[in-house]
C-alpha cells in the first residue's frame, strides 16, 4: 500500500506529519502490539487498529502549543469522529472542537479533512464514537497549519 498524491494536490503544500512536529500519541484505547498507536504519527504506511467495542480514542501531544487550520485523517471503517482539544500541559479539560461523520469506503482508505478553524492546542483527542464494522483503523493523521 502506498500513499501517493498527485504533485498538485493542495494537501502537499502545508501537510506536516505529526512526528515532524514533535507530536506523539500518548494514550490509546486499544491494544494490538503489532499495530501500536505510534503508527498513526510516523508518516508511513502502518496503522493503528482498534480491538473491539466503541468508543475508541487516542490523544496526540504536541511539543508545544500548535495552531492548526485542519487535520487530515486517513482511516478505515470510522463512522463518527469527535475531536477535542486542550491548551493545558497535562492533558486535562478537553473541550469539543468539531465532530464529523465519515463516508463508508470499501477496498480503499477513507481520507477526510477535518477543519479545526485555527485552534491552538497542546493536545488533540480523537474519539471514534461509532464505526462501520466491529473494528476500525487509523493510518495517518497530518496537520495543516
Amino acid at each position: 500500500m502506498k500513499y501517493t498524491r498527485s504533485p498538485g494536490d493542495p494537501r502537499n503544500m502545508t501537510d506536516s506529519s505529526l512526528s515532524s512536529l514533535g507530536a506523539k500519541v500518548v494514550v490509546a484505547s486499544s491494544g494490538d502490539e503489532n499495530h501500536p498507536p505510534e503508527n498513526i504519527t510516523d508518516g508511513t504506511e502502518t496503522f493503528w487498529m482498534s480491538t473491539g467495542m466503541f468508543p475508541q480514542e487516542f490523544i496526540v501531544r504536541f511539543a508545544e502549543a500548535t495552531t492548526m487550520s485542519a487535520v487530515t485523517v486517513d482511516s478505515y471503517n470510522v463512522k463518527h469522529l469527535r475531536i477535542e482539544k486542550t491548551a493545558s500541559q497535562n492533558a486535562s479539560q478537553f473541550e469539543l472542537v468539531t465532530e464529523k461523520e465519515f463516508g463508508h469506503t470499501e477496498g480503499h482508505l477513507q481520507s477526510n479533512v477535518v477543519s479545526l478553524n485555527g485552534s491552538s492546542a497542546t493536545h488533540l483527542r480523537f474519539i471514534i464514537t461509532t464505526g462501520y464494522d466491529h473494528f476500525v483503523s487509523v493510518h495517518r493523521v497530518t496537520v495543516q497549519n
Partner: peptide
Amino acid sequence: TIQNLSPG
C-alpha cells in the same frame, strides 16, 4: 483486509 487496502 485492512493490510491489503489501497490508499484513499
